[in-house]
């Protein structure tokens, strides 16, 4: 039968892992950010979801972090894992060294320890970029739906797969310098709605939203976003394409 959960040789005893976690509780005036080390024994198939919950259950009940689906679908658990923005729930400890450093995603408001307020930022960005279908025609509930080419539906879904985890923002050079930069997550959404024939907005309308340094012209093409996106969205090509389209509008 197939070999699941790539086994370690039987004689090898499990590794002791050290998780160095950047801790800070902004609600506590006495708290200062500091690394705290926790030791646990590695188990087969262990993810950071399992490891962090074990630490909270057995060592430190005050440790803050966010998990929801624990299946890499909901985008709640993005954090810096050895400095790289990734989803903790689907990171297997066996793919990391014995000493693992965890820190909250930078840029977002810190709630405590590894928990950051991505939701607030994402809602703000959605409002700013109006990330919804703009169409004044009332939807007819009883008649056949509008047709769409199958490939187009798939192409829209390709961009619709963003899970708003915030990794791209954490990995973005511009976002570190320009606080209001909409980032790859924002630009990708514009690309998604631009592609969607149900959205009646024109490129002029989109230019209003992203035709400046806080939008598509702020991107320095460092591609940090593209490299860290856990859903492997085609961010690089989308942003480049959008930039060309918006540049055309800018010249007009």
């Amino acid at each position: 039968m197939i070999n699941i959960l790539r086994r370690k040789p039987a004689d090898q005893s499990p590794r002791r892992l050290t998780l160095n976690i950047l801790r800070h509780n902004p609600a506590d005036p006495a708290s200062v950010p500091q690394l705290q080390a926790y030791e646990i024994e590695e188990a087969e198939g262990m993810t950071l979801f399992i490891a962090l919950n074990e630490i909270r259950a057995t060592q430190d009940p005050s440790l803050q972090f966010d998990f929801v689906c624990r299946a890499g679908i909901c985008g709640s658990c993005a954090m810096l894992i050895d400095g790289r923005p990734s989803l903790a729930c689907r990171t297997l400890t066996r793919d990391l060294g014995k000493s693992i450093t965890l820190a909250p995603l930078p840029f977002f408001e810190l709630i405590g320890d590894l928990s950051v307020n991505t939701g607030k930022w994402m809602r703000g960005t959605s409002e700013r970029l109006q990330t919804w279908i703009h169409n004044q025609t009332p939807i007819s509930l009883n008649t056949l739906e509008e047709r769409m080419e199958p490939e187009l539906a798939e192409a829209i879904y390709e961009l619709d797969r963003c899970i708003e985890c915030g990794c791209c923002i954490a990995g973005c050079g511009t976002a570190q310098m320009r606080e209001k930069f909409v980032g790859a997550v924002g630009l990708n959404k514009i690309a998604r709605f631009r592609l969607d024939p149900r959205d009646n907005r024109s490129d002029d309308d989109f230019y209003e939203l992203i035709g400046d340094d806080e939008g598509v012209f702020g991107c320095m093409s460092l591609l940090g976003c593209h490299d860290v996106c856990p859903k492997q969205l085609p961010l690089q090509t989308q942003i480049a394409y959008l930039r060309r389209k918006m540049a055309v509008i800018g010249f007009e």
């Binding site: 279908i133 939807i139 007819s140 009883n142 739906e145 769409m148 539906a153 798939e154 969607d196 149900r198």
Partner: peptide
């Protein structure tokens, strides 16, 4: 069926018949 069609209007990229 009304719900699916409403969602289509709101942008859900339902897979389509080829």
């Amino acid at each position: 069926p009304k719900a699916v069609r409403e969602l289509a209007g709101w942008g859900v990229p339902w897979n389509r018949v080829q």
